[in-house]
Design a protein around this nucleic acid. Structure first.
Length: 527
DNA sequence: GGATCCGTTGTAGCT
DNA sequence: AAGCTACAACGGATC
Protein backbone atom coordinates (compact mmCIF):
# COMPACT_ATOMS: atom_id res chain seq x y z
CA UNK A 1 0.00 0.00 0.00
CA UNK A 2 1.51 3.29 -1.12
CA UNK A 3 0.03 6.63 -0.14
CA UNK A 4 1.06 10.05 -1.43
CA UNK A 5 0.39 13.37 0.21
CA UNK A 6 -0.56 15.89 -2.46
CA UNK A 7 0.24 19.26 -0.96
CA UNK A 8 -1.57 22.07 -2.81
CA UNK A 9 0.57 25.14 -2.32
CA UNK A 10 -0.15 27.78 -4.96
CA UNK A 11 -2.35 25.60 -7.12
CA UNK A 12 -6.00 25.88 -6.15
CA UNK A 13 -7.38 24.12 -9.20
CA UNK A 14 -7.95 20.77 -10.89
CA UNK A 15 -7.05 21.85 -14.44
CA UNK A 16 -3.38 21.97 -15.42
CA UNK A 17 -2.45 20.55 -12.06
CA UNK A 18 0.64 18.44 -12.78
CA UNK A 19 0.93 17.33 -9.16
CA UNK A 20 -2.54 15.85 -8.93
CA UNK A 21 -2.39 14.45 -12.47
CA UNK A 22 0.92 12.74 -11.81
CA UNK A 23 -0.34 11.27 -8.56
CA UNK A 24 -3.44 9.90 -10.24
CA UNK A 25 -1.48 8.43 -13.19
CA UNK A 26 1.39 6.96 -11.21
CA UNK A 27 1.23 3.15 -10.97
CA UNK A 28 3.24 3.12 -7.77
CA UNK A 29 0.70 5.23 -5.89
CA UNK A 30 -2.42 3.53 -4.53
CA UNK A 31 -4.06 6.37 -2.63
CA UNK A 32 -3.60 10.07 -2.08
CA UNK A 33 -4.22 12.60 0.69
CA UNK A 34 -4.85 16.14 -0.57
CA UNK A 35 -3.71 18.79 1.89
CA UNK A 36 -3.83 22.58 1.99
CA UNK A 37 -1.94 24.59 4.62
CA UNK A 38 -3.05 28.08 5.47
CA UNK A 39 -0.33 30.41 6.71
CA UNK A 40 -0.86 31.84 10.19
CA UNK A 41 -0.94 35.36 8.77
CA UNK A 42 -4.43 34.68 7.43
CA UNK A 43 -5.83 33.43 10.71
CA UNK A 44 -4.24 35.86 13.17
CA UNK A 45 -4.96 39.22 11.62
CA UNK A 46 -2.99 42.34 12.53
CA UNK A 47 -2.46 45.76 10.99
CA UNK A 48 0.21 44.28 8.74
CA UNK A 49 -1.85 41.31 7.62
CA UNK A 50 -3.45 40.95 4.22
CA UNK A 51 -6.85 42.66 4.06
CA UNK A 52 -10.17 40.87 4.38
CA UNK A 53 -10.63 41.20 0.60
CA UNK A 54 -7.56 39.07 0.06
CA UNK A 55 -8.65 36.67 2.77
CA UNK A 56 -12.10 36.33 1.27
CA UNK A 57 -10.73 35.62 -2.20
CA UNK A 58 -8.30 33.02 -0.89
CA UNK A 59 -10.89 31.30 1.29
CA UNK A 60 -13.38 31.15 -1.58
CA UNK A 61 -10.65 29.67 -3.75
CA UNK A 62 -9.84 26.97 -1.21
CA UNK A 63 -13.54 26.22 -0.72
CA UNK A 64 -14.01 26.09 -4.48
CA UNK A 65 -11.19 23.59 -4.78
CA UNK A 66 -12.71 21.45 -2.03
CA UNK A 67 -16.09 21.56 -3.77
CA UNK A 68 -14.59 20.56 -7.12
CA UNK A 69 -12.69 17.72 -5.49
CA UNK A 70 -15.90 16.52 -3.82
CA UNK A 71 -18.22 16.86 -6.78
CA UNK A 72 -15.92 15.77 -9.60
CA UNK A 73 -13.49 13.39 -7.93
CA UNK A 74 -15.32 12.15 -4.80
CA UNK A 75 -12.51 13.48 -2.67
CA UNK A 76 -12.01 16.58 -0.57
CA UNK A 77 -9.02 18.28 0.94
CA UNK A 78 -7.69 18.53 4.48
CA UNK A 79 -7.17 22.11 5.55
CA UNK A 80 -4.66 23.02 8.24
CA UNK A 81 -3.32 26.31 9.44
CA UNK A 82 0.10 26.97 10.91
CA UNK A 83 3.71 26.16 10.21
CA UNK A 84 3.94 23.63 7.39
CA UNK A 85 7.08 22.00 8.76
CA UNK A 86 5.52 21.37 12.17
CA UNK A 87 2.33 20.06 10.62
CA UNK A 88 4.13 17.64 8.33
CA UNK A 89 6.36 16.53 11.18
CA UNK A 90 3.28 15.53 13.16
CA UNK A 91 1.69 13.82 10.18
CA UNK A 92 4.82 11.88 9.27
CA UNK A 93 5.30 10.69 12.85
CA UNK A 94 1.77 9.42 12.88
CA UNK A 95 1.80 7.77 9.49
CA UNK A 96 5.46 6.97 8.93
CA UNK A 97 4.87 3.57 7.40
CA UNK A 98 1.92 4.53 5.26
CA UNK A 99 3.21 7.62 3.47
CA UNK A 100 5.59 7.02 0.59
CA UNK A 101 5.46 10.34 -1.24
CA UNK A 102 5.16 14.02 -0.55
CA UNK A 103 4.21 15.76 -3.78
CA UNK A 104 3.84 19.51 -4.24
CA UNK A 105 4.24 22.43 -6.60
CA UNK A 106 7.37 24.60 -6.58
CA UNK A 107 7.01 27.97 -4.82
CA UNK A 108 9.66 30.53 -5.59
CA UNK A 109 8.99 33.01 -2.80
CA UNK A 110 11.60 33.11 -0.03
CA UNK A 111 9.16 31.73 2.56
CA UNK A 112 8.10 28.92 0.28
CA UNK A 113 11.69 27.97 -0.50
CA UNK A 114 12.60 28.01 3.18
CA UNK A 115 9.76 25.74 4.26
CA UNK A 116 10.50 23.30 1.42
CA UNK A 117 14.17 23.17 2.45
CA UNK A 118 13.16 22.45 6.03
CA UNK A 119 10.75 19.74 4.99
CA UNK A 120 13.36 18.07 2.80
CA UNK A 121 15.80 18.18 5.69
CA UNK A 122 13.16 16.64 7.91
CA UNK A 123 12.71 13.83 5.42
CA UNK A 124 16.37 13.29 4.62
CA UNK A 125 16.62 10.19 6.82
CA UNK A 126 13.17 8.88 6.08
CA UNK A 127 11.88 6.62 3.37
CA UNK A 128 9.36 9.23 2.25
CA UNK A 129 10.25 10.60 -1.17
CA UNK A 130 9.57 14.19 -2.14
CA UNK A 131 8.80 15.42 -5.60
CA UNK A 132 8.49 19.13 -6.31
CA UNK A 133 6.85 20.03 -9.62
CA UNK A 134 8.33 23.03 -11.44
CA UNK A 135 6.52 25.39 -13.81
CA UNK A 136 3.16 25.26 -12.03
CA UNK A 137 2.83 28.95 -11.14
CA UNK A 138 4.86 29.95 -14.18
CA UNK A 139 5.34 28.91 -17.80
CA UNK A 140 9.10 28.51 -17.48
CA UNK A 141 10.94 26.20 -15.11
CA UNK A 142 12.41 29.12 -13.18
CA UNK A 143 15.21 27.26 -11.38
CA UNK A 144 16.32 25.46 -14.51
CA UNK A 145 16.46 28.67 -16.53
CA UNK A 146 18.41 30.72 -13.98
CA UNK A 147 20.92 27.89 -13.57
CA UNK A 148 21.51 27.45 -17.28
CA UNK A 149 25.03 28.34 -18.35
CA UNK A 150 24.26 31.31 -20.56
CA UNK A 151 21.69 32.91 -18.25
CA UNK A 152 21.95 36.65 -17.73
CA UNK A 153 19.41 38.73 -15.82
CA UNK A 154 16.79 39.73 -18.38
CA UNK A 155 15.89 43.39 -18.54
CA UNK A 156 14.07 43.79 -21.81
CA UNK A 157 11.57 42.05 -23.98
CA UNK A 158 14.40 40.99 -26.26
CA UNK A 159 16.12 39.16 -23.40
CA UNK A 160 12.99 37.37 -22.31
CA UNK A 161 12.18 36.51 -25.93
CA UNK A 162 15.54 34.76 -26.20
CA UNK A 163 14.93 32.85 -22.97
CA UNK A 164 11.55 31.66 -24.25
CA UNK A 165 13.11 30.57 -27.54
CA UNK A 166 15.84 28.60 -25.75
CA UNK A 167 13.62 26.97 -23.18
CA UNK A 168 10.27 26.21 -24.75
CA UNK A 169 8.99 24.22 -27.62
CA UNK A 170 7.89 26.74 -30.16
CA UNK A 171 5.70 26.97 -33.22
CA UNK A 172 6.86 28.95 -36.27
CA UNK A 173 5.84 32.16 -34.53
CA UNK A 174 7.94 31.15 -31.57
CA UNK A 175 5.06 30.98 -29.15
CA UNK A 176 3.55 27.56 -28.48
CA UNK A 177 4.43 26.28 -25.05
CA UNK A 178 2.62 22.97 -24.89
CA UNK A 179 -0.85 21.96 -23.93
CA UNK A 180 -2.06 22.47 -20.43
CA UNK A 181 -3.37 19.42 -18.60
CA UNK A 182 -7.05 18.55 -18.30
CA UNK A 183 -8.33 17.76 -14.80
CA UNK A 184 -7.63 14.15 -13.77
CA UNK A 185 -10.55 11.82 -14.55
CA UNK A 186 -10.28 10.05 -11.23
CA UNK A 187 -8.18 10.06 -8.11
CA UNK A 188 -8.05 7.68 -5.17
CA UNK A 189 -8.37 9.65 -1.96
CA UNK A 190 -7.58 7.75 1.21
CA UNK A 191 -10.75 8.73 3.02
CA UNK A 192 -10.02 6.64 6.11
CA UNK A 193 -6.64 8.20 6.75
CA UNK A 194 -8.00 11.65 5.97
CA UNK A 195 -10.68 11.18 8.59
CA UNK A 196 -8.23 9.94 11.17
CA UNK A 197 -5.98 12.96 10.55
CA UNK A 198 -8.93 15.30 10.88
CA UNK A 199 -9.88 13.74 14.21
CA UNK A 200 -6.37 13.40 15.58
CA UNK A 201 -5.65 15.09 18.93
CA UNK A 202 -2.16 16.32 18.09
CA UNK A 203 -3.29 17.80 14.79
CA UNK A 204 -6.44 19.34 16.21
CA UNK A 205 -4.70 22.63 16.92
CA UNK A 206 -3.90 22.94 13.21
CA UNK A 207 -6.97 21.39 11.64
CA UNK A 208 -9.61 23.69 10.17
CA UNK A 209 -12.95 22.06 9.33
CA UNK A 210 -14.26 23.01 5.93
CA UNK A 211 -17.36 24.49 7.55
CA UNK A 212 -15.28 26.90 9.68
CA UNK A 213 -13.62 28.29 6.58
CA UNK A 214 -16.98 28.56 4.88
CA UNK A 215 -18.49 30.45 7.80
CA UNK A 216 -15.51 32.78 7.96
CA UNK A 217 -15.78 33.56 4.23
CA UNK A 218 -19.50 34.21 4.57
CA UNK A 219 -18.96 36.40 7.60
CA UNK A 220 -16.42 38.54 5.73
CA UNK A 221 -18.72 38.70 2.74
CA UNK A 222 -21.70 39.92 4.73
CA UNK A 223 -19.58 42.55 6.51
CA UNK A 224 -18.27 44.01 3.27
CA UNK A 225 -20.11 46.86 1.66
CA UNK A 226 -22.01 46.28 -1.54
CA UNK A 227 -19.81 46.60 -4.57
CA UNK A 228 -16.73 45.33 -2.83
CA UNK A 229 -17.29 41.62 -3.44
CA UNK A 230 -16.97 41.95 -7.18
CA UNK A 231 -14.34 39.23 -7.61
CA UNK A 232 -15.43 35.82 -6.44
CA UNK A 233 -12.55 33.45 -5.77
CA UNK A 234 -12.19 29.94 -7.17
CA UNK A 235 -11.36 27.87 -10.21
CA UNK A 236 -14.87 27.78 -11.64
CA UNK A 237 -15.14 31.53 -11.61
CA UNK A 238 -11.66 31.75 -13.18
CA UNK A 239 -12.66 29.47 -16.07
CA UNK A 240 -15.92 31.35 -16.70
CA UNK A 241 -13.99 34.62 -16.84
CA UNK A 242 -11.30 33.12 -19.08
CA UNK A 243 -13.96 31.97 -21.53
CA UNK A 244 -15.82 35.27 -21.50
CA UNK A 245 -12.85 37.65 -21.71
CA UNK A 246 -10.36 35.60 -23.75
CA UNK A 247 -11.59 32.42 -25.45
CA UNK A 248 -14.89 33.92 -26.64
CA UNK A 249 -13.46 37.38 -27.29
CA UNK A 250 -10.98 37.09 -30.11
CA UNK A 251 -11.26 40.74 -31.02
CA UNK A 252 -10.53 41.76 -27.45
CA UNK A 253 -7.40 39.61 -27.44
CA UNK A 254 -6.27 40.62 -30.92
CA UNK A 255 -6.67 44.32 -30.23
CA UNK A 256 -5.38 44.20 -26.66
CA UNK A 257 -2.90 46.97 -26.10
CA UNK A 258 -2.02 47.58 -22.48
CA UNK A 259 -0.70 51.13 -22.79
CA UNK A 260 -3.90 52.15 -24.57
CA UNK A 261 -6.44 50.34 -22.47
CA UNK A 262 -8.81 52.56 -20.56
CA UNK A 263 -7.31 52.79 -17.14
CA UNK A 264 -10.54 52.58 -15.26
CA UNK A 265 -13.41 50.26 -16.07
CA UNK A 266 -15.53 48.70 -18.74
CA UNK A 267 -18.26 51.01 -19.92
CA UNK A 268 -21.56 50.41 -18.16
CA UNK A 269 -20.09 48.51 -15.24
CA UNK A 270 -17.90 50.48 -12.85
CA UNK A 271 -16.53 47.31 -11.28
CA UNK A 272 -15.62 45.37 -14.41
CA UNK A 273 -11.98 45.86 -15.48
CA UNK A 274 -11.28 46.99 -19.04
CA UNK A 275 -8.54 44.35 -19.02
CA UNK A 276 -9.08 40.62 -18.43
CA UNK A 277 -9.42 40.84 -14.65
CA UNK A 278 -7.76 37.42 -14.47
CA UNK A 279 -4.80 38.43 -12.31
CA UNK A 280 -6.30 37.44 -8.92
CA UNK A 281 -7.10 34.01 -10.33
CA UNK A 282 -3.54 33.56 -11.55
CA UNK A 283 -1.90 34.77 -8.36
CA UNK A 284 -4.13 32.59 -6.18
CA UNK A 285 -3.49 29.55 -8.37
CA UNK A 286 -7.11 29.25 -9.59
CA UNK A 287 -6.06 29.70 -13.22
CA UNK A 288 -3.09 28.15 -14.99
CA UNK A 289 -0.98 30.78 -16.68
CA UNK A 290 -0.12 28.16 -19.31
CA UNK A 291 -3.80 27.70 -20.12
CA UNK A 292 -4.21 31.46 -20.40
CA UNK A 293 -1.20 31.67 -22.71
CA UNK A 294 -2.61 28.94 -24.95
CA UNK A 295 -6.07 30.53 -25.07
CA UNK A 296 -4.51 33.84 -26.09
CA UNK A 297 -2.56 32.07 -28.82
CA UNK A 298 -5.73 30.45 -30.14
CA UNK A 299 -7.41 33.85 -30.28
CA UNK A 300 -4.51 35.23 -32.36
CA UNK A 301 -5.53 33.25 -35.43
CA UNK A 302 -4.78 35.93 -37.96
CA UNK A 303 -1.74 38.12 -38.38
CA UNK A 304 -3.37 41.43 -37.52
CA UNK A 305 -3.12 41.19 -33.78
CA UNK A 306 -1.12 43.24 -31.33
CA UNK A 307 2.33 41.89 -30.47
CA UNK A 308 4.49 41.91 -27.35
CA UNK A 309 5.08 43.99 -25.32
CA UNK A 310 1.66 45.60 -25.55
CA UNK A 311 -0.28 42.36 -26.20
CA UNK A 312 -1.57 39.95 -23.57
CA UNK A 313 1.23 37.53 -24.44
CA UNK A 314 3.67 40.37 -23.86
CA UNK A 315 2.21 40.94 -20.42
CA UNK A 316 2.69 37.27 -19.61
CA UNK A 317 6.28 37.39 -20.88
CA UNK A 318 7.09 40.17 -18.44
CA UNK A 319 5.49 38.14 -15.68
CA UNK A 320 8.00 35.37 -16.39
CA UNK A 321 10.80 37.95 -16.47
CA UNK A 322 9.96 39.17 -12.98
CA UNK A 323 9.75 35.62 -11.66
CA UNK A 324 13.21 34.88 -13.07
CA UNK A 325 14.68 38.08 -11.64
CA UNK A 326 13.05 37.48 -8.27
CA UNK A 327 15.12 34.30 -8.04
CA UNK A 328 18.34 35.43 -9.67
CA UNK A 329 18.69 38.89 -8.10
CA UNK A 330 19.75 38.94 -4.45
CA UNK A 331 17.55 41.05 -2.17
CA UNK A 332 14.88 41.44 -4.83
CA UNK A 333 12.49 42.92 -2.27
CA UNK A 334 14.92 45.44 -0.81
CA UNK A 335 16.41 48.80 -1.74
CA UNK A 336 19.69 47.78 -0.18
CA UNK A 337 22.26 45.44 -1.74
CA UNK A 338 19.95 44.84 -4.67
CA UNK A 339 21.75 45.07 -8.02
CA UNK A 340 18.40 45.84 -9.62
CA UNK A 341 17.74 48.84 -7.37
CA UNK A 342 19.58 52.15 -7.46
CA UNK A 343 20.01 53.52 -3.94
CA UNK A 344 18.12 56.77 -4.40
CA UNK A 345 18.01 59.06 -1.37
CA UNK A 346 14.28 59.05 -0.79
CA UNK A 347 12.77 61.50 1.68
CA UNK A 348 12.08 60.85 5.34
CA UNK A 349 8.91 58.86 5.92
CA UNK A 350 6.12 61.45 5.72
CA UNK A 351 3.22 59.94 7.60
CA UNK A 352 0.50 62.50 6.75
CA UNK A 353 1.33 62.31 3.05
CA UNK A 354 1.52 58.52 2.96
CA UNK A 355 -1.76 58.28 4.85
CA UNK A 356 -3.43 60.71 2.47
CA UNK A 357 -2.13 58.60 -0.41
CA UNK A 358 -3.25 55.32 1.13
CA UNK A 359 -6.74 56.55 2.02
CA UNK A 360 -7.36 58.41 -1.24
CA UNK A 361 -7.28 61.92 0.27
CA UNK A 362 -4.49 63.54 -1.74
CA UNK A 363 -6.77 66.06 -3.44
CA UNK A 364 -5.93 64.46 -6.81
CA UNK A 365 -9.19 62.78 -7.78
CA UNK A 366 -7.67 60.30 -10.24
CA UNK A 367 -5.14 59.13 -7.64
CA UNK A 368 -7.76 59.10 -4.89
CA UNK A 369 -10.28 57.16 -6.98
CA UNK A 370 -7.66 54.52 -7.71
CA UNK A 371 -6.59 54.21 -4.08
CA UNK A 372 -10.19 54.03 -2.85
CA UNK A 373 -10.95 51.33 -5.39
CA UNK A 374 -7.94 49.39 -4.11
CA UNK A 375 -9.04 49.82 -0.50
CA UNK A 376 -12.55 48.78 -1.22
CA UNK A 377 -12.23 46.02 -3.84
CA UNK A 378 -8.60 44.89 -3.72
CA UNK A 379 -8.12 45.54 -7.42
CA UNK A 380 -6.77 48.39 -9.54
CA UNK A 381 -6.05 48.75 -13.25
CA UNK A 382 -2.41 48.42 -14.23
CA UNK A 383 -2.20 52.01 -15.48
CA UNK A 384 -3.74 53.23 -12.23
CA UNK A 385 -1.02 51.33 -10.38
CA UNK A 386 1.50 53.18 -12.54
CA UNK A 387 -0.02 56.53 -11.75
CA UNK A 388 -0.30 56.05 -7.98
CA UNK A 389 3.12 54.45 -7.55
CA UNK A 390 4.80 57.12 -9.63
CA UNK A 391 2.95 59.72 -7.54
CA UNK A 392 4.18 58.24 -4.24
CA UNK A 393 7.80 57.89 -5.36
CA UNK A 394 9.68 59.81 -8.06
CA UNK A 395 6.67 61.79 -9.24
CA UNK A 396 5.29 63.78 -6.33
CA UNK A 397 5.75 62.54 -2.77
CA UNK A 398 9.39 61.34 -2.94
CA UNK A 399 8.74 58.41 -0.62
CA UNK A 400 10.56 55.08 -0.68
CA UNK A 401 8.87 52.57 -3.02
CA UNK A 402 8.89 49.93 -0.28
CA UNK A 403 6.19 51.89 1.59
CA UNK A 404 3.82 51.58 -1.34
CA UNK A 405 4.93 48.04 -2.07
CA UNK A 406 3.85 46.96 1.43
CA UNK A 407 0.47 48.68 1.16
CA UNK A 408 -0.15 47.06 -2.23
CA UNK A 409 0.88 43.69 -0.88
CA UNK A 410 -1.59 43.91 1.96
CA UNK A 411 -4.51 45.05 -0.17
CA UNK A 412 -4.24 43.61 -3.67
CA UNK A 413 -6.24 40.44 -4.21
CA UNK A 414 -3.77 39.63 -7.00
CA UNK A 415 -0.78 40.29 -4.77
CA UNK A 416 2.29 38.40 -5.92
CA UNK A 417 5.71 38.77 -4.28
CA UNK A 418 7.82 38.62 -7.44
CA UNK A 419 5.53 40.86 -9.49
CA UNK A 420 4.71 43.42 -6.83
CA UNK A 421 8.38 44.08 -6.11
CA UNK A 422 9.26 44.08 -9.81
CA UNK A 423 6.55 46.58 -10.66
CA UNK A 424 7.52 48.93 -7.84
CA UNK A 425 11.18 48.77 -8.84
CA UNK A 426 10.12 49.57 -12.36
CA UNK A 427 7.79 52.44 -11.49
CA UNK A 428 10.14 54.02 -8.95
CA UNK A 429 12.65 54.23 -11.80
CA UNK A 430 15.39 52.45 -9.86
CA UNK A 431 15.77 49.23 -11.85
CA UNK A 432 17.80 48.48 -15.00
CA UNK A 433 14.53 47.59 -16.74
CA UNK A 434 12.85 50.84 -15.67
CA UNK A 435 11.93 53.48 -18.16
CA UNK A 436 13.91 56.75 -17.99
CA UNK A 437 13.16 58.43 -14.66
CA UNK A 438 12.11 61.72 -16.21
CA UNK A 439 9.03 60.19 -17.78
CA UNK A 440 6.66 61.11 -15.00
CA UNK A 441 2.99 60.23 -15.06
CA UNK A 442 0.55 63.10 -14.81
CA UNK A 443 -1.70 62.51 -11.77
CA UNK A 444 -4.39 64.49 -13.61
CA UNK A 445 -4.69 62.71 -16.97
CA UNK A 446 -7.45 64.79 -18.50
CA UNK A 447 -8.97 64.34 -21.92
CA UNK A 448 -5.87 65.69 -23.66
CA UNK A 449 -3.99 62.56 -22.75
CA UNK A 450 -4.16 59.82 -25.35
CA UNK A 451 -4.24 57.21 -22.59
CA UNK A 452 -7.66 57.95 -21.26
CA UNK A 453 -11.15 58.40 -22.57
CA UNK A 454 -12.57 61.51 -20.96
CA UNK A 455 -16.06 60.47 -20.05
CA UNK A 456 -15.14 57.03 -18.79
CA UNK A 457 -12.46 58.39 -16.48
CA UNK A 458 -14.69 61.21 -15.23
CA UNK A 459 -17.44 58.73 -14.39
CA UNK A 460 -14.89 56.48 -12.74
CA UNK A 461 -13.82 59.36 -10.50
CA UNK A 462 -17.41 60.23 -9.63
CA UNK A 463 -18.05 56.61 -8.67
CA UNK A 464 -15.10 56.32 -6.28
CA UNK A 465 -14.95 59.93 -5.10
CA UNK A 466 -18.65 60.65 -4.61
CA UNK A 467 -17.87 64.08 -3.13
CA UNK A 468 -17.29 65.10 -6.75
CA UNK A 469 -20.42 63.48 -8.15
CA UNK A 470 -21.86 66.76 -9.41
CA UNK A 471 -18.59 68.26 -10.59
CA UNK A 472 -18.32 69.10 -14.29
CA UNK A 473 -15.90 66.88 -16.24
CA UNK A 474 -13.85 69.90 -17.18
CA UNK A 475 -12.62 70.31 -13.60
CA UNK A 476 -12.92 66.80 -12.27
CA UNK A 477 -9.20 66.03 -12.44
CA UNK A 478 -8.28 69.28 -10.68
CA UNK A 479 -11.37 70.44 -8.82
CA UNK A 480 -9.48 73.10 -6.84
CA UNK A 481 -9.14 75.04 -10.07
CA UNK A 482 -12.89 75.42 -10.41
CA UNK A 483 -14.33 78.76 -9.29
CA UNK A 484 -16.05 78.96 -5.93
CA UNK A 485 -19.27 79.41 -7.82
CA UNK A 486 -18.84 76.11 -9.63
CA UNK A 487 -17.77 74.41 -6.39
CA UNK A 488 -20.96 75.69 -4.71
CA UNK A 489 -23.23 74.59 -7.51
CA UNK A 490 -21.49 71.17 -7.47
CA UNK A 491 -22.10 70.85 -3.71
CA UNK A 492 -18.43 70.35 -3.02
CA UNK A 493 -16.23 73.05 -1.57
CA UNK A 494 -12.59 72.14 -2.06
CA UNK A 495 -10.66 72.27 1.19
CA UNK A 496 -13.84 71.49 3.07
CA UNK A 497 -15.77 68.67 1.42
CA UNK A 498 -12.79 67.33 -0.54
CA UNK A 499 -9.11 68.06 0.17
CA UNK A 500 -6.96 70.60 -1.57
CA UNK A 501 -4.04 69.00 -3.40
CA UNK A 502 -1.43 67.94 -0.81
CA UNK A 503 1.37 69.00 -3.17
CA UNK A 504 1.82 71.29 -6.14
CA UNK A 505 2.15 68.62 -8.79
CA UNK A 506 4.28 70.62 -11.19
CA UNK A 507 6.69 71.95 -8.58
CA UNK A 508 7.12 68.60 -6.83
CA UNK A 509 7.74 66.95 -10.19
CA UNK A 510 10.43 69.47 -11.00
CA UNK A 511 12.12 69.15 -7.61
CA UNK A 512 12.04 65.38 -7.74
CA UNK A 513 13.56 65.24 -11.21
CA UNK A 514 16.49 67.27 -9.85
CA UNK A 515 16.78 65.05 -6.77
CA UNK A 516 16.76 61.94 -8.89
CA UNK A 517 19.38 63.39 -11.17
CA UNK A 518 21.57 64.29 -8.21
CA UNK A 519 21.25 60.84 -6.67
CA UNK A 520 22.23 59.40 -10.04
CA UNK A 521 25.22 61.70 -10.33
CA UNK A 522 26.40 60.77 -6.82
CA UNK A 523 26.09 57.14 -7.78
CA UNK A 524 28.25 57.44 -10.85
CA UNK A 525 30.84 59.33 -8.79
CA UNK A 526 30.86 56.31 -6.52
CA UNK A 527 29.46 58.06 -3.45
C1' DG B 1 35.78 54.08 -28.76
C1' DG B 2 32.65 57.88 -29.47
C1' DA B 3 28.18 58.38 -31.64
C1' DT B 4 23.81 56.79 -31.98
C1' DC B 5 19.87 54.14 -30.95
C1' DC B 6 16.39 52.39 -28.06
C1' DG B 7 13.81 51.08 -24.07
C1' DT B 8 6.47 47.21 -22.01
C1' DT B 9 3.00 51.50 -21.93
C1' DG B 10 5.03 60.19 -20.51
C1' DT B 11 3.35 64.97 -21.23
C1' DA B 12 2.03 69.19 -23.44
C1' DG B 13 1.06 71.72 -27.25
C1' DC B 14 0.56 72.10 -31.85
C1' DT B 15 -1.37 70.95 -36.42
C1' DA C 1 -8.16 62.45 -34.21
C1' DA C 2 -3.68 61.01 -34.97
C1' DG C 3 0.83 62.33 -35.35
C1' DC C 4 4.54 65.32 -34.76
C1' DT C 5 7.92 67.79 -31.74
C1' DA C 6 10.07 69.55 -27.71
C1' DC C 7 10.76 68.59 -23.13
C1' DA C 8 15.29 66.80 -20.59
C1' DA C 9 18.46 63.70 -20.95
C1' DC C 10 19.42 57.65 -18.22
C1' DG C 11 22.32 53.76 -19.52
C1' DG C 12 23.28 49.75 -21.97
C1' DA C 13 23.71 47.79 -26.61
C1' DT C 14 25.15 48.36 -31.03
C1' DC C 15 27.51 50.30 -34.75
Amino acid sequence: MSTAIVWFRNILRLHDNPVLSWASDCDGIDTIIPIYILDDKWVNQSNHSPTVNRKKFLYESILGLNRNLEEKLQSGILIFSGNAVEIFKSIFEMLDTEITWLLCDFCSEPEGLKSMDEIQLLLSDSSIQTKVFPAVSTILDIEKVIRSEDFINPKSLKDIDKIFANNLETDPDGYLVGESLAPPKQIKPNINVMQSLANNDILSKYYIPFTDLQQEAMKIDSNLETGTHYFLGGENEALVRLKRKVSDSHNFVNDFSKPHSVSTNEQGNPLEPSTTGLSPYISNGCLSVRLLWNECRKANFNSSHTKPPESLLGQLMFREMFYLLSRSVENWDDDNANTNCKPIEWGEYDEPKVTAWELGMTGFPYIDAMMRQLESTGWMHHLGRHAVSCFLTRGQLWQNWKIGRDIFDRKLIDSDWALNNGNWLWLAGVAPFSMPYYRVYNPCPDSKSSLNAETVDADFIRYWVPELISFPSKYIFEPHRASLEIQRSSNCIIGQDYPNPIVNRKESRKENLIRFKESNANLSKGN
